[in-house]
Design a protein around this nucleic acid. Sequence first.
RNA 1: CGGGACGUCGCCUAGCGGCUAUGGCGCCUGCUUUGGGAGCAGGAUAUCGAUGGUUCGAGUCCAUUCGUCCCGACCA
Length: 585
Amino acid sequence: MRMSSMFSRTLREAPNGADCKGYEYLLRAGYIRQMGAGIFSLLPLGFRATQKIQNIVRDEMNAIGAEEILMPLVNPADIWKETGRYYSIDKEMSRFQDRVGRDMVLAMTHEEAVTDIARGEIDSYKRLPLLVYQIQTKWRDDPRPRAGLIRVREFTMKDSYSFDRDWEGLDKVYKAHYKAYFRIYSRCGLPVIAVGADSGMMGGKVSHEYMYLSPIGEDTIIYCPECGYTANRQVASFQKEYYPEEMKTIEKIATPETKTIEELSALLNVEKSRMAKAVFMVGTFIDDTNGEEETKLVVAIIRGDMDVEESKLSNAVKANALRPAHEEEIAECGMVAGYASPIGAKGKYVVIVDDTVAKSNNLVAGANEEGYHYINTNFGRDYTGTVADIASAKDGYKCPVCGKPLNVSKGVEVGNIFQLGTRYSAAMNCFYQDETGKQQPVIMGSYGIGIGRLLACLAEEYNDESGLKLPISVAPYQVHLVSLVKDTAIADKIYEDLVAAGIEVLYDDRKDTAGVKFADADLIGVPIRLTLGNRSIKEGKVEVKLRATGEVTSYAIEDLAAEIKAEIAKEQKKIDEAIVEKELN
RNA sequence: CGGGACGUCGCCUAGCGGCUAUGGCGCCUGCUUUGGGAGCAGGAUAUCGAUGGUUCGAGUCCAUUCGUCCCGACCA
């Protein structure tokens, strides 16, 4: 490509709002342009980089036997009503009506669509297993897009769907994805870790997320440097200590003006770990079959020294959504904020008790009366509720596997894999007949990779003060030919020779000064830069500089294509040698 | 959906009630220059996000609204 006729151009200054480096460079180098909140266009450079990523993804998906398909972005709402997600998903999913008034949705994922197709294809166990994938646009009307391509509303996603007759089959294809994903990310040059995850709106049991560890990430990862345990904080567990002892008599004591755990701990001279803290949320519960909503007060009881992990709580009560409760809502159930406990509560509420509280005795708790607390409260005797792990893991807590202190890091989720089971097949009547003639629901899995987000993470990982420096496997071009000579004949000839040799060349043939061309080359970040100047031309040579390392060599102009091909192969080899092979045990 | 900030030419930016709305980059013309964002000379480009109001006078103050960004809620 000749830069003199390239569609995009570079920006010298970062547009307002570009607050992280990778995003700033993608904008300035002309990879992407913003059109609205969370809505972006890919310019030629960004499009090419994205194509490279997609082809790596295709390669690895094909390698595990997946077939590529393309499903529609617009879905009839009917199939989403079948699974109930039409009702349970809030405004993230955009809905509209077609000209005759039929309900339609913009698909934010394709479990419904693929299951709808699959039920028409699958009738017998002989048709299983099956595996398909697509690379397609998703629309999710996120309330808060952020950080350039990291969190957007419209994005491209690779999503695959597996269909098996049994859990063993699902396990096999799940493991194949687990491994293939590591190969994909490492071939793109992105370091990731796989973590145990919450399955969220997808439903199902087992799931993993692929995380690029970075301060710009929004997810919190808990990991053990000792044994390698990793999990999203939403589901991370840890070793807890309990304080079982002989139950003592419950007693009400005056604790004026002590609404917080800190104040209470100081006043009574009792450790925070010996208190039962009540956290109030209002849960929304939606009936999947008709969309009817019900709200209920959720009382979470946790030890005073810990915090409630909302997603754990949400899973424990099986709520569609949780929000903090207002003081009046708490009062309606007979509880007093600041001095609250389930003891003496009334009305419509549900109590979830963390196991640390359930297995400890004689804890301090609220008396539901302004200025009073109870001492020696005991779960089971004084109040009841559902026992679950709802505690949030923190830095320094003990690893659930080896007991060593846990660490915390921020991460960006660049992919996920879910074992869906029969969540969709059962709801949508996707059954097969087994050898005995019995109808069985198909066992499904779904597996996603955000393509644009992957590019954004790569831009974040590979940059310096002058711009991007992407790995050759994902860079928009392999070679950037910078011509500084007036007489274009030699440069044109080199360009044509390289292109003829099958090399992807970005050719700076513009009538700009050397400084401008070098600055743009650094910004765009093509891995191999060839400089053709009067200096080197006299010697019949071209200078070669690697963007990533700054390493400089030079090659004779004759035979250049062969040398450059070898250079490209060397760069590619670095990537190939670093491919991560990881199996799920 | 709560809290905050911001909208002035393609990009960045000045303006703080008063004359024809700054400056830089970029762009166009000419000459010069050609290994790290060149120099000189000339030139074009803004319905100051929109609407309404206050005022003799509004980019500037007020209201409404739209948009974008940040923090939170939320989310894969």
